[in-house]
Design a protein around this nucleic acid. Structure first.
Length: 459
RNA sequence: GGAGAGAUGGCCGAGUGGUCGAAGGCGCACGCCUGGAAAGUGUGUAAACUCCAAAAGGGUUUCGUGGGUUCGAAUCCCACUCUCUCCGCCA
């Protein structure tokens, strides 16, 4: 079943806005694009118990907040009706004035003018109240995350995630080096040089290390296009509207690099530009499914990260990733999610890496996701699992923000479903490849990758 | 960076204060015509909010965005954004 998303255009703006761009682009006037919020409110209203139950999976007691939202919305509707009636009378009266003037009925026209003046005064007040009430509805509504699908296990932390599949074999290594040592030993990744050029988290790949990057990108893209994904090369910077569409703005502003002078954001993932290709679009059912793949560098500020999590390639400010994105009819989105998981799994298998697939619990899932599968590969030298892919169904949560719709058989517009996943993210794949495949003779390159690297060992 | 032009429905394009949600064309949908098709022809063809149990129907809003003038704005005024052309710079 398909649950409409919960967030529409909000009144919240990023805190720091260049003076030049002060104007609030996200302000929702009462007359525009409100339908999706209403859809959601309808569900909040009619399926309150169900919604509460779903959100409880995320450890969220939303009873109070939903009551508040519905209350605000009642007030909003009442005001809307009043205002509409007011404006209707204004319109009729104004039209009459024209006729009266022509007929020379000056006095009556004068009276009508006074009437409209009074109505106008009232409308102004109503409009203001309506705007305030809408803001209350929105400000409260944006606090609600997407509803977890029924498959999502309850839980608070990653400890509650469920392993749904495992594969590959963990190699038995003696005196295994972590990848940052291997990188130095074979001179393939220079972290210090990156610090000199830019700062921590911006490594420089060299020689076979650089070639390995290029090989992996090509390998991933080829596997994806073979599976029916169309390759796209999107911009690496996006505007505010795109950031809002996929849910990075306004809340996660601090995670993105901001190019102040032009008010652009460096993409944290290809998901942002690629998904936004279909922002403000109304599709036909026959257009589905739409499957896109893109390689892009990704830029993340990762403020607040520290310790062993950020060592070496484990967490970077700039890294390469190949993404897959799908746009689906609601009834097909979960089958598509499964297919995406199977697809990513086949690639990990080709790389001969030990992996496991996790179904994320409510507490560990992102704000926007309805169901997420994480892929982790085992890093033999670090003796830990590294997340290399996250495959999610957002149902209509993003589509709502994007205003991505399709026309159903009754010609009504409905929200589409969006999905995406990494296929795959490079750095931790590289880390695992280096660590798991280290031998006294060098680092072995998996068979599937050799046509792309042109070498079978890094020594 | 300098100078100029522009922004109207899926697309093209008309429209300088009321009869404009917006002519005309293209496209699309359905019908007629046809053995079938083309041509021809007829009808229809935006989104969102709201009222109504629902349908039907009604109301409101939207002509880049925001504000202003006016009883009344696509049309007049102001600001902003974006696009295009020319010049400059340049991978």
């Amino acid at each position: 079943m398909y649950i409409a998303s919960l967030v529409g255009y909000t009144n919240t703006m990023p805190k720091k806005t260049p003076a030049k761009l002060k104007k609030n682009r996200y302000l929702c006037k009462h007359h525009i694009n409100y339908r999706h919020i209403m859809l959601t409110l309808k569900i909040l209203r009619e399926q309150t118990a169900e919604v509460l139950e779903r959100l409880a999976v995320k450890g969220l007691d939303a009873k109070e907040i939903i009551n508040k939202i519905l209350q605000f919305d009642d007030a909003r509707k009442a005001l809307q009706t009043q205002l509409d009636n007011n404006l209707a009378e204004q319109n009729v009266t104004a039209k009459n004035i024209g006729a009266l003037m022509q007929q020379g009925k000056k006095e009556e026209a004068e009276a009508a003018k006074q009437r409209t003046a009074a109505l106008k005064e009232q409308s102004k007040v109503l409009e203001q109240q309506l705007a305030e009430t809408e803001k209350q509805v929105n400000d409260t509504l944006v606090l609600l995350p997407n509803l977890p699908s029924k498959l999502v296990p309850a839980g608070k932390t990653s400890a509650d995630n469920v392993v749904v599949r495992e594969g590959g074999a963990v190699p038995a290594l003696h005196d295994a080096l972590p990848h940052w040592d291997l990188a130095k030993k074979y001179d393939i990744i220079d972290f210090d040089l990156g610090v000199k050029l830019t700062g921590a988290g911006f490594p420089v790949y060299k020689g076979k290390g650089a070639k390995l990057q290029r090989a992996l990108i090509s390998f991933f893209l080829d596997r994806n296009t073979n599976a029916g994904y169309t390759e796209v090369q999107p911009p690496l910077m996006v505007n505010e509207a795109s950031g809002f569409g996929t849910g990075q703005l306004p809340d996660k502003e601090g995670q993105m690099y901001h190019v102040g002078i032009d008010n652009f954001y460096l993409i944290p993932t290809a998901e942002v530009p690629v998904t936004n290709i279909y922002r403000d679009v109304i599709l036909n059912p026959a257009d589905f499914p739409i499957k896109l793949t893109a390689y892009t560098p990704c830029f993340r500020r990762e403020a607040g990260s520290y310790g062993k999590d950020v060592r070496g390639l484990n967490r970077l400010h700039q890294f390469d990733k190949v993404e897959i994105v799908q746009f689906q009819l609601p009834e097909n989105s979960y089958a598509a999610l499964d297919a995406m998981v199977t697809h990513v799994e086949s690639i990990v298998n080709e790389l001969e890496l030990p992996y496991r697939i996790l179904r994320l619990c409510g507490g560990d899932m992102s704000f926007t996701s309805a169901l997420t599968y994480d892929f982790e590969v085992f890093s033999a030298a670090q003796q830990r699992w590294l997340e290399v892919s996250s495959v999610s169904n957002f149902e209509s949560f993003q589509a709502n923000r994007l205003k991505l719709r399709y026309r159903d058989e009754n010609k009504k517009t409905q929200l589409a479903h969006t999905l995406n996943g990494s296929s795959l993210a490079l750095p931790r794949i590289v880390a695992a490849l280096l660590e798991n495949n280290q031998t006294p003779e060098g680092i072995r390159i998996p068979k599937a990758l050799q046509p792309y690297t042109g070498f079978d060992v890094i020594s």
